[in-house]
Design a protein around this nucleic acid. Structure first.
Length: 598
RNA sequence: GGACCCGUAGCUCAGUUGGAUAGAGCGUCGCCCUCCGAAGGCGAAGGUCGCACGUUCGAAUCGUGUCGGGUCCGCCA
């Protein structure tokens, strides 16, 4: 649980830079200090790292280039640094001694997959809520992206030092659950041999028969096996709801949640807490939280303005119980009670988030579909009001996924129940391809999921490309174990290998990339953007594939040097460290590293 | 009418939270296997970062406006 920061050469060098700046008797305000960064050089000609320290610390009297030079001089005294120069408007370019870079390899091998762990989360209790759906059917591709993004984000936050709980909110309290019960009841009547036709049955259902998919057929059969004909009339027709509704509803809900959890398990998603909206409602939590807000003067009875330009036909002003969300930046105040006095979904959701706060979470992240974007401001307002500003709600919005095959859209019809389920998707392309591909776009960008591309074994399929790099690493290490014995080629043995033979440019390029892993983790965690991990791994794989191919032209770059064990082990340390970082990244994404391609 | 998201190479997308000459893949063209996995690699061509102002040493990134695409907007959850 407790993550400790492991080697982070960028953080180390930033400390050195700050010390060098302060040695120039430059007083740094905290906000100036914060803005000083040490980042990878964009171009190899600039060295390994660049800092903006002189640009940031410059004042009217002291121009960037003037203060850069003494800072650079101070840095030159650092034994880890090879050379330092000042360029452009006042950038300080740092080139590390190659020994400094090489020393990362044993550090990475000793740390293993813990390399990249960070303490920036500070143990902050964080709750990541994702998938949260109406339990009315199997998980389909629309939920899939949120499931993967939420799960990877939670993993990422763990790696960054947050105390994370993964949570699922079961929306099991609304009218659609009653509709689900009717649909299951229909399958039950069919199972016991009702004389009713589907049309005759549907005519009796309030709101019409929904959820026509055949996934409820087994549920109906099980109900029949358990209850026989006891839930129907003597003629096997529709009995009074008091006879069957709560029984069928509860049973069906349990079955649907079992299905959903099984689907999520196929995706590799295992959440810690499942919270029931129904349980919350029945406990009276919504009324309690409304009373709490009222005590703070944030509740009033009022009439909302109709939306401008798009007033519904049947609009008529009605007094409602309203929450002053405008106090916290929302556009309009929001209703908590319907005109019949029952609570809105929003009221229940406030109670749910109040519950999270009571459980001690200080960072709440909701992973939602983009169609909930308009709902976020009122929820943020509620969390700010309830926590008196001590906790924050953040929303990660996932845009829609279009499934295509060979450029043609795959039709999805929810009404017919034939829409693409996660189960179908995983059967076709595999769990790892689904998870990785879902993370190859920013969450808030629309995505095309091309069924053909994600199984293609070419460079334009990032899943394959990254897996291939790892498989190549493992392949070399297997060959090395044959050659030198498994004892000499384990990660721990390689961590002790002498590294003098290393240091050619393509090798250093890989090590520079490995060096970035901790700061990638931090930046991705702070931005709540797990997709950055996927792009980092793709870049690392590219560096590694390049090195591999350079070995074809230049035999000194080959990993296995016949008859030269010391040189081989030095290169194997680089290979093993690369494999470690790929595994570390894939672990965040929830993707299995493969030993060989098939 | 309003809110949120997006707009970067012919196409699909990154861009390290304000840094230097804006990067990948696909597609096009030209190369590299006697050799650890060529399921790969190297190179060339391709750009007014939608547009216009503004903020400052410096803008794809921040602000305002505007155009285009998407999502949403009181008793649905």
């Amino acid at each position: 649980m407790n993550r400790t920061a492991v080697t982070d050469i960028f953080a180390d060098m930033r400390e050195a830079v700050l010390a060098a700046v302060e040695a120039q008797s430059l007083a740094l305000a905290d906000e100036v200090r914060e803005r000083i960064t040490v980042s990878p050089a964009r171009e190899a000609a600039h060295g390994d790292m660049v800092t903006n320290a002189a640009l940031v610390a410059a004042t009217q009297g002291r121009k960037p280039r003037q203060i850069a030079e003494p800072i650079a001089a101070a840095l030159r005294a650092d034994p880890r640094i090879g050379s330092v120069d000042v360029a452009g408007p006042g950038f300080i370019n740092i080139r590390l001694r190659s020994e400094t870079l090489l020393a990362l390899l044993p550090a990475i091998l000793r740390a293993g997959e813990a390399y990249g762990d960070s303490t920036i989360g500070g143990g902050c209790p964080a709750n990541v809520e994702y998938v949260s759906t109406n339990p009315t059917g199997p998980v389909h591709v629309g939920h899939c992206r949120g499931a993967v993004v939420g799960d990877a984000l939670a993993n990422l936050l763990v790696k960054a030092g947050y105390a994370v709980t993964k949570e699922f909110y079961i929306n099991d309290a609304g009218a659609q659950v009653t509709a689900l019960a009717w649909a299951a009841y229909w399958r039950y009547l069919q199972a016991i041999g009702t004389p009713l036709t589907e049309q005759e049955f549907a005519a009796e259902v309030p709101g019409g028969l929904q959820y026509g998919g055949d996934y409820l057929v087994p549920v109906g059969a099980e109900l029949a096996a358990i209850h026989g004909a006891a839930l129907a009339t003597a003629e096997r027709g529709i009995a009074a709801p008091e006879v069957w509704l709560s029984t069928v509803r509860d049973f069906t809900l349990a079955e649907m949640m079992r299905e959903i959890r099984a689907d999520l398990a196929l995706l590799g998603v295992h959440q810690d807490v499942f919270s029931s909206e129904r349980a919350l409602v029945e406990s009276g939590a919504a009324d309690a939280v409304i009373a709490q807000l009222a005590a703070d003067g944030l509740i009033y009875e009022g009439v909302l303005e109709p939306p401008k330009g798009k007033a519904p036909e049947d609009w008529e002003p009605r007094p409602q119980t309203l929450f002053r969300s405008t106090t916290f930046g929302d556009d309009t105040d929001r209703p908590l009670r319907k005109s019949d006095g029952s609570n809105t979904y929003f009221a229940n959701d406030i109670a749910y988030h109040a519950d999270k706060l009571e459980r001690g979470f200080r960072l709440l992240i909701d992973v939602l579909g983009a169609d909930h974007g308009g709902y976020v401001p009122r929820l943020k307002a509620a969390v700010r009001a309830l926590s008196h500003g001590e906790a924050a709600l953040e929303a990660v919005l996932c845009q829609i996924v279009h499934v295509v095959r060979g450029g043609q859209p795959v039709p999805m019809s929810k009404r017919a129940g034939t829409y693409v389920t996660v189960r179908d998707l995983i059967e076709e392309v595999g769990r790892d391809a689904v998870r990785f591909t879902m993370l190859t776009r920013k969450a808030d960008a629309q995505m095309e999921f091309d069924l053909d591309q994600v199984v293609a074994q070419t460079r334009d399929n990032p899943v394959f490309y990254v897996q291939y790099a790892h498989a190549r690493c493992r392949s070399v290490l297997r060959a090395a174990a044959e050659m030198f014995g498994a004892g000499a080629t384990s990660d721990s043995a390689l961590a002790a290998a002498a590294l003098e033979g290393l240091g050619a440019e393509p090798e250093l390029a890989v090590i520079r990339r490995l060096a970035q892993w901790p700061r990638v983790v931090q930046a991705a965690a702070l931005a709540r953007e797990p997709h950055r991990i996927a792009f980092f791994l793709y870049d690392l794989a590219a560096d590694f594939h390049m090195l591999w191919n350079r070995g074809k032209d230049d035999s000194t770059l080959r990993f296995l040097q016949a008859g030269r064990q010391a040189e081989s082990l030095a290169r194997l340390a680089l290979v093993a460290a690369t494999a470690v970082v790929i595994r570390s990244g894939l672990a965040v994404m929830g993707v299995t590293p493969v030993e060989e391609m098939r």
